[in-house]
Every structure is written in C-alpha cells, then in structure tokens.
C-alpha cells in the first residue's frame, strides 16, 4: 500500500513574523523556512508504517516554488521514497490545494493520505478534510494513534475534552496531531543519499485545474500588543485586583 504525504514549506516556528511593508502579507524574505511541524509528524508516521511493513511506498508532495525542494529533500532524508513538486508562484487557498492534491491522489491511488492537521502559518486546518470530501473518502482528523489492520485503519483522535477512536475503511484521509509521534532527525548519510534521489517536478499550470481565488487578504497586522502590567507586592494585592478591579474571580 502506498501512502501520500502532502507537506508545506512554512516560516520556521522560531521566527518572529512581521507584516510586509505594504501591510498586506507576511514578510518571508530572508527568514528561516522549514517543513510545517504537523506535516513532519504525518511524514514520520508514514515512514514508521513502512518500516513496520504496513506500507510499501511513501510519496511526499508539495505545492510551491522551486525553493520547496529543500523540504522535499528533508523528507527524502527521513525516509520518504519519492518526492513530487508541483510548481507555482501562486499562494493557493486550502480548497485549491485540496483540488490539486485530489488530482495527485487519483493518479497515484494510495491507500492512505496522511497530512498534518494544519499549517502553522495560515492556521486554516482545512486541507485534509477538504481532500477527504473531494475524494469521497472517510476521514480521521487530529490523530494521536494510527494502526493499520488489513483494509482498515484504526485511528485515535484527540478531541476537546478527550479521545475518540474511529475505524476507517481504506482508502482514507488521516490528519496528524502533536501527540502522534516525535519525528526523527535525519542522519548525515541519509541526507547525502537523499541528495541523489530524484524529485519529480511538474507545474500547476500543466495540470489545467480550475482554481479560482475566493478570498482576498486586505491587511496583515501585528495585534495591538498587550500593555505591560504592574508588579504587585503581595498575594493579597493580587486577589484584590482580580476580585474587585477585574472581577474575574469571586
């Protein structure tokens, strides 16, 4: 069984992000980029399933500029077998991403699409669910455990206030949450080997998909910073403030 893992190149989570000078986007010039952490977890899970003999091949795919080859190489170095770059300068909305991935899945016919639950830049949390909808596949979002048994996946989901376990008939879509695993680091020999693995490249244009933009970003701003408050000299003063000024405790 083949597993497709779509990944996204994002600004590294340690970077302090800023709006662009014109205030309509996020400044990504000369900042450190990385594979989205949740995509990294999805990839790790796919690689582990392959190592346990439950999957035959792991294909990573990303949609972006040529620069995203860096993240695909990183994915090859931790165990992906093949990589596909769908090149475009456009920043696609989640539905457009899902439509593009639907085409890839229809061509590749995997038994499982494993994605991160969300990208830490746009924070949309949509692509996996949309992909499942467009394919007519069952879904399990926010996975904290994935087991494959024959033609079925048993997935434990992390939901508000607890856990829910679902069984999905394959093929299916699963999105990874933080607790699913701890991704490995690439070993140097594997990084060297990954440099020699081919990355298949095609352009979004040649796929001839209709992907109209539906939203427009009018502004990106830094939220009004919180005012630095006051240092109090006693627990009594704190309780007084919380009870009588802020009225957040009784």
């Amino acid at each position: 069984m083949k597993i497709v893992v779509p990944i996204k190149r994002v600004i590294d989570h340690n970077v302090r992000v800023r709006p662009t000078a014109d205030g309509t986007g996020v400044d990504s010039t000369s900042v450190k980029m990385a594979i989205n952490p949740f995509c990294e977890i999805a990839l790790e899970e796919a690689v582990r399933l392959k190592e346990r003999g439950l999957a035959s091949e792991v294909l990573v795919v990303t949609i972006g500029t040529a620069a995203a080859q860096e993240q695909l190489r990183g994915a090859l170095a931790v165990g992906a077998d093949r990589a596909l770059l769908i090149e475009t300068e456009r920043a696609l909305e989640p539905l457009a991403v899902a439509r593009t991935l639907t085409r890839v899945v229809e061509e590749e016919r995997p038994g499982l699409a494993l994605l991160g639950k969300q990208a830490i830049d746009s924070d949309d949390n949509q692509v996996g669910q949309m992909l499942a909808a467009l394919l007519g596949w069952p879904q399990a979002t926010f996975a904290s455990a994935v087991e494959l048994e024959g033609e079925k996946a048993r997935v434990t989901r992390e939901v508000d206030g607890g856990m829910v376990t679902l069984e999905l008939a394959l093929p299916a879509v699963v999105t990874a949450d933080l607790r699913l695993n701890e991704p490995r680091y690439a070993r140097l020999p594997d990084i060297m080997k990954a440099k020699k693995k081919p990355i298949e490249r095609r352009t979004l244009e040649e796929m001839a998909l209709d992907l109209p933009a539906q939203t427009e970003v009018l502004a990106v701003e830094t939220p009004t910073p919180r005012q630095r408050g006051v240092i109090l000299d006693s627990v009594d003063a704190l309780i007084d403030k919380l009870r009588n000024v802020e009225k957040v405790i009784r």
Partner: peptide
C-alpha cells in the same frame, strides 16, 4: 472546536467553496 474543525471544511468542499477559519 475540534468538532467544527472536523465537519465544516468537509462541508465547504462539498459545497465547492472555501472556508475562513
């Protein structure tokens, strides 16, 4: 919520529209 996040994007895609999260 995790419930809304699970269902809503799936419904949006079926309806052929995007979602603002």
């Amino acid at each position: 919520s995790t419930f809304g996040k699970d269902v809503l994007p799936r419904a949006a895609a079926l309806a052929g529209v995007g979602q603002i999260s």
